[in-house]
Amino acid sequence: MRTSPRVRAGQYVLLAGFLLFLGFPVLWIVSASFKSSAELNSLSASLIPNEWVFTNFTEALERQNLLRSAANSFLVAVCTMVLGVVLTLPMSYALARLRGKLRAAGTVWILATQVFPQILIIIPLFLVLRTVMLNDTLFGLILVYVTFTLPFTLWMMQGYVAAIPRELEDAGAMDGANRFRVLLHIVFPLLRPGLMATAMFTFVSAWNEFFLALVLLQSPELYTLPITLRSFLGAEGQTQLGPLAAGAVLATIPSVIVFGFLQKKLTGGMLAGAVKG
């Protein structure tokens, strides 16, 4: 599988273009987090701050309970991720491999949740949560996040399941392994890349979700990170750009670490083994 040098060069140029497109706005926010308020409100457009200031970070950390809300967010995001993965894996398999009314109902539900404007579900959802006394709790928020991310994770995972050749399972079954074993040792390992992508999705969704957290949480000590970050957007568009940028940069770091961790598992290159196993 050799690639010609010209193609290779083209690939690098294209990749560099993508990296510039995706990375530049990130760099710009990082640069903004080190700029003084005066520089941010000037006509200069340099990526390197004229004068490096660090007060944005101290201000972000000191003033808005950033750390407490980060801890809340982390708890919520990790629990959502774990629960989400645990529920998605078997359900997506069932949804992809089996048919009949159950599957049809599942598909309708998945699409309906995604298509129906979320804003219209908020108030009925709030009333339900209040009835079961879970409004203004992180546990309620986690359950809501899990059920709200589940349609998408199922939708994606059933795509991955569908891509697994049925023959692999049949081969396993012929070797005499029972169905549960086939699932555990043949199907699930093959789904690992998709599962890792799913885990990333649930983590980031829960970590960055703003609107549901805003309306479901009332006590300031339960606020999640996005709520705290938004408090830098004041009334009348008085955005405190520097501290907001600093807060956003800090808020990005945990997700990137989680990504780095899951990313390794996403690309394990384990398929060759799985087929023989």
């Binding site: 530049f24 706005p25 457009a45 990005t252």
Partner: peptide, 29 residues
């Protein structure tokens, strides 16, 4: 692979703000 993922990790609240800065008529890069 990590660089590609960072925009996903960034809080959406700054997405609009940073792009408004980038698109700014007078001071945008």
């Amino acid at each position: 692979r990590i660089i590609v993922l960072i925009p996903w990790a960034m809080p959406p609240v700054v997405t609009g703000i940073v792009w408004r800065m980038i698109y700014d008529v007078n001071s945008g890069p």
